[in-house]
């Protein structure tokens, strides 16, 4: 992926002039190293930057420097109860409070049935909570009508599902471009952007293939490309590597890293994989519908 801009230190405070003065010589040094040692050096230096950013964020959060009002995701007292006729009601989520800022990559972990997927669905407006509030991208979901929710799902968030959920009769290209149908882009523009996204996830030569003709990893990459189609602020990934082998899983997580770095996208990943969880800015543990 293109290295569009450097990741800035994520604090809610205004960048210090002194600090920015110090950055400039460092940037020049970095470019000199890359000029001498090539693109491989750039990759190493970018990784160092990223780790540094993660540590800075964690430090800022530990100091309480994040303001809930500026959180891109803010849940307060969120609950979800499933009720079916003749069956015992199930409390999938109980009084969940959670704040996540722009650009964070958060892992949600917990045992099976703990409410991880339900939490993601509430945040992504795929379902309606029984009580409590969800403010996503500074919009209260409960105050949105059907049309606004549809637009929210199209423009603000992107979903990556464990079982990929690609449309079986559509090619990879069509699966990505369909996500842009509610925008003002014309057909040619949509297809062009879809092609560009598929190339970026390494599927430039598989665009015309149907999902059934793609491997699990390839399908998941199509799913990621689809999720990115409308430049969402937030990506929700529900067990994105659950059906994949370890090597493919690493590829997928690297993709997420790149997305987060290049676009400052907030990424929420539901996972059982502690390695992936350690890779994230922070981990949210959930058990029996409550955040621990």
């Amino acid at each position: 992926m293109k290295n569009k801009e450097k990741t800035e230190k994520i604090t809610e405070t205004t960048p210090d002039e002194e600090a920015s003065k110090e950055m400039l010589p460092l940037n020049h040094l970095k470019e000199a190293v890359v000029a001498q040692y090539g693109d491989d050096a750039r990759l190493i230096l970018d990784s160092i930057d990223e780790v540094e950013a993660i540590l800075l964020r964690r430090e800022a959060r530990a100091k309480g420097e994040f303001d809930d009002a500026k959180a891109i995701i803010h849940l307060s007292g969120l609950s979800k109860k499933y009720e079916s006729a003749g069956m015992t009601p199930v409390d999938a989520l109980k009084e969940v409070d959670l704040s996540i800022v722009q650009g964070e990559m958060v892992a949600v972990i917990g045992p099976s049935g703990s409410g991880k997927s339900t939490l993601l669905q509430m945040m992504g407006a795929l379902d309606v909570p029984t009580s409590g509030g969800a403010r996503i991208n500074f919009q209260e979901l409960s105050e949105m009508n059907t049309k606004e929710l549809t637009q929210f799902r199209s423009q603000t968030v992107g979903f990556v599902f464990q079982k990929f959920n690609l449309i079986p009769n559509l090619s990879a290209l069509e699966n990505v471009s369909i996500a842009m149908e509610s925008t003002k882009m014309n057909r040619q523009e949509r297809r062009s952007r879809a092609a560009e996204l598929l190339k970026e996830v390494g599927l430039g030569k598989r665009m015309s293939h149907l999902p059934g003709q793609l491997s699990g990893g390839e399908q998941q990459r199509v799913s990621i490309a689809r999720a990115l189609a409308n430049h969402p602020k937030i990506i929700y990934a529900d067990e994105p590597t659950g059906s994949l082998d370890s090597k493919t899983s690493r590829t997928i997580i690297q993709l997420f890293d790149t997305i987060r770095r290049d676009f400052n996208t907030t990424i929420i990943i539901v996972t059982h994989n502690h390695t992936i969880a350690k890779h994230c800015d922070r981990t949210v543990k959930i058990k029996d519908g409550r955040i621990k």
Binding site: T150, Q151, R153, S154, Q155, A179, R226, N230
Partner: peptide, 8 residues
């Protein structure tokens, strides 16, 4: 799926 990806 179509609803989830924001198709009207």
């Amino acid at each position: 799926v179509l609803k989830a990806i924001g198709l009207p």
